[in-house]
């Protein structure tokens, strides 16, 4: 078994109800170096927050807090 302990959702454990699209640094933690959104299986994010996270990242991309892609 690679994943011995089940990861907990970052947003559930920190009790952040709303994922802020203005916090680019935080969002970057859930993205690969190529700026792709990580799947929840990698980050342990729960389904509810993964949906919110994806929306926040897409907003942040539009406002250039987070890149669409990196070369």
């Amino acid at each position: 078994m690679l994943q011995q302990e089940q990861k907990q959702c970052y947003f559930c454990t920190t009790n952040r109800d709303v994922i802020d699209y203005k916090d680019g640094e935080m969002l970057r933690k859930f993205m690969s170096s190529q700026a792709k959104i990580y799947p929840p299986r990698k980050t342990g994010t729960c389904a509810h927050h993964q949906r919110q996270l994806a929306r926040a990242i897409k907003r942040a991309r539009f406002l250039a807090f987070v890149p669409y892609t990196t070369r």
């Binding site: 302990e5 907990q8 454990t13 009790n15 109800d17 709303v18 539009f62 406002l63 250039a64």
Partner: peptide, 24 residues
């Protein structure tokens, strides 16, 4: 340069309570 208009989500700032990790 850019702007966005988004519906504001309810911001309920709950006190930070760390959930007890269900121990194996």
């Amino acid at each position: 340069l850019r702007f966005l208009i988004v519906g504001e989500e309810e911001t309920q700032v709950r006190p930070q309570i760390l959930r007890t990790i269900p121990s194996r």
